[in-house]
Structures are given as C-alpha cells and as structure tokens.
Design a protein around this nucleic acid. Sequence first.
DNA 1: GATATACTTACGGGAATCCGTAAAAGAAGA
DNA 2: TCTTCTTTTACGGATTCCCGTAAGTATATC
Lengths: 221, 221
Amino acid sequence: MFKKVLIAEDHESSNISIRKALEDFGCLNNDHVYYCDDALKRINHALKTGNEYDLLITDLSFEEDEIPQTIGTGTELIKAVKELQPNIKVLVFSAESKGAIIDNLFKELNINAFVRKARRDVTELKQAFDAICNQKTYLSASLRRSIQYSNAYEFKEFDIILISLLSKGVLQKDIPTHLKAKKIKPSGLSSVEKRLNYMKEVLSFNNNEQLIAFCKDIGVI
Amino acid sequence: MFKKVLIAEDHESSNISIRKALEDFGCLNNDHVYYCDDALKRINHALKTGNEYDLLITDLSFEEDEIPQTIGTGTELIKAVKELQPNIKVLVFSAESKGAIIDNLFKELNINAFVRKARRDVTELKQAFDAICNQKTYLSASLRRSIQYSNAYEFKEFDIILISLLSKGVLQKDIPTHLKAKKIKPSGLSSVEKRLNYMKEVLSFNNNEQLIAFCKDIGVI
DNA sequence: GATATACTTACGGGAATCCGTAAAAGAAGA
DNA sequence: TCTTCTTTTACGGATTCCCGTAAGTATATC
C-alpha cells in the first residue's frame, strides 16, 4: 500500500475521481494540487520534512490560466520531480493516446503506469495502483496492442528535425541553412532530400503532406 | 431543484464526478449510463412510465468499443431525445472548446448549459445546475469571451477536402481527377492551387506541410 | 439581348522539388 | 600510408508546384 500520494491534475472533475479511486483502494493519505509548480513544492517540502510521497499521479497537459507557472506540463513535472526524488513512483493519467508519446514516457522517464482517460478509467486506475504496489508497470488495456504496431518506422532524431522544420514552414531548400546554424551533422540539401525520400519510401507515402499528417497522428511532432 | 436527472458520459471518472456534483447540489435522484443508446432507452422508458427526467447531462464525444451503437455522439443523442421529449433540459459537459461548435449547440439544439471539462469544471457544473433551475442558460466562464476569436480562419468544406486529399498522399496535380470523380464543383487545377494558396496566405504559412500540421493540431482533419 | 460581376478554367514562365549519378570527404582496417 | 567501404555533398535533367494573366462560363440585372 502507498504511504502517501500526491495528485497533480488541473481538472477538478478528474482530480475528485482520482481521490475517490485512491480511497476506494484503501489509500486515505493523499494530497492534491491543481498546478505543476505546487506539486513540485509539495514534493520538495515533504522530502525536507522527512515524510516523502511514494507515488505521484499526474496529468500530462495543464491548461494555462491567469497564474503563471514555471512548469507547464506533466512531462516537465516528472523530470523535475525525479531529480529531487529519483525513487518516486509515477502514474500518468491522461487523455493522450499516441503511442510514440506514451512509449517515450516509459522509456525516457521510467514512469510506472499510464492510464488513459477513457471508458473504464477508474477501474484501470485501481488496477494500476495494484500493479505499482507489486512493483510492476501498468498500461491501459486499449493501448497495449497499438503501442508497438504504430512504429512501422522508427523515426530518428534527424528525421524529426527535418519534419519539424517543414511543419514550421521552412522550405526544403532552406533546411541546410537551419541545420548548419544548429551544427547538425549531415546538412547538405541532398542528404535532406535523400532522408525525406527514404522515409516516404519505407512508409510508402507519396508526398510530404502525407508524411506530416502521419507524424502528427502518431505524435512524433 | 431537479426531480430526476440522467447522466450520459462514457468516461467513468467524469461520470463519477458529475454524480458527486449533483449530490452536493442536493439532487439525489439521478441515473447514469455509459452509452448513448442506453440514454435514449432510459428517456423513452421514463416517459412511458410517467416519471420522466427533467435534465439530461451528456458528453459530446463517446468512444467506440466492442458494443456497436446506433447513436454515437452527444449531438445525435440530444436531437433524438428532444424529439421524444422536447421540454427536457440539457447540459453538455465536454472538453470541446471550439466556439463554432458550442455556439451551434445553443442555437440549433437549444441546450441550456455548456460546461467545459477544465480547471474548475465541478464548480461550474454546480453554477450551471443553479442557472438551469432558475430558467437561465449557462456557459463556462473561460468560453464566454473567446467564443469567436479562436477561428483564425474558418475552413470551408472544400478546404478540408483538399487538405484531406493531400494528407492521404494525393499529389496536387491529381486532385482534379479525384474531385471530378466525386462530382465536387470547382475541380480545375487552378482552383485547387488558388484555394491552397489563399489558405496559406491568410494564415501566413510558407508551405503545404505547415498547413497540414496546423490542421492536424486544431483537429479539422 | 446586352452588360456587369463573380467564379472557374487554361496556359506559361519561373521556382522548388524529385531522382539518379558521380565526385568528395570520412572512417575503419591492414 | 594506402585501400576499402560508407557517408556526405555536388550537379543536372525531369517533374511538380507556384503564381500571375487571360480566356471562358454562369448568373443576375436592367
């Protein structure tokens, strides 16, 4: 069982349901905040006073309002929290469904569970609590299949740079200039062309527009 | 006060929070369903047995799963319900934030309240209950101002057809063929070019890739 | 029927992209 | 150091796209 849990979730309705799920699970010692900055403060304070949290439940997207925040997203929050307290368990509760993004959370940030806001989300939350208690990871049922399959092609860092530049309105012929400015290794126009053509060939796409649409769909940009 | 309320919301977490908000407001006589079809059945049955609902709370988007549904969206549900029981009050609880869509709900479907799933959504739900009880309409605070402004450019049906074709990999020069096949009115290549250029000019974009990325972001494709 | 207006299509020159080939530059191993 | 192999860059022709102009078509008004 968890000794102490912190909930970071801006939507009042989700926040309430998470608390209720925790209480149903038998965990009554939980705090909740509506802003990332507050979450980090709590984590920090708890560490200093010697009664740290052992689980952080957080959303990914937090809406901006009149109160300016240093940390604006769940991803940033997790990074900051893990620097303070590397051993903390993390459960992400979000409406995100793009495989690439969720995959990255497990691989890069070592989160312990991802529950998607969806039909049976509260049931899944409790299953995730259980998994974490048993030192296992948890991923929403609806996402388990589609997590690998979307990776028909693994986008390298260079690929994503090219695609991002295009989607920001940089013309293909101007990409070498941008690459040189950022000292990125292959910067010739031919390399750019070759790489874009290679991606389209592997994915059997016909034009750049289709490539951009695909990358937006799976969340790599 | 409401005599009887029906909640149609597929997300378990939101469903729970709505129920809790209703109970906090003092309304204990409420039913909840997770599918539109079930909602319509309940409305129908209640009418026949003479103890009809006086408020329907519904989401807009319902996720498909293994159980096939006749009614798939909140908008369709509201239409169907109003045909059975025109006097029923309707509160829409959704993450939707596009002014055009919400505006349409009030104008075309005569809904009584729209609460956006956001930071203070439960508080707003209670304010909306209060407004409806007093025969008033309610709209989330964050949406009251920005109801028009989000439309930097209103995409017409033709625009979306063009963008969709491109994002599916159809080359620009081949678009006229597709348009003629579907008997879409302006089908000349020049018209296609002109329209794409117009969109890019209005949005001050440099290339098609940027346009595709934008449309993916705001959800028109 | 003539005219005006708006919209659609056709055409052509120039720019950008596509695509193959070849030269140049690095990297690795003997 | 030289050779071999890989990667990057340079170049050029074909294709596609961009963009302005002109011609065609439809509708409405008088």
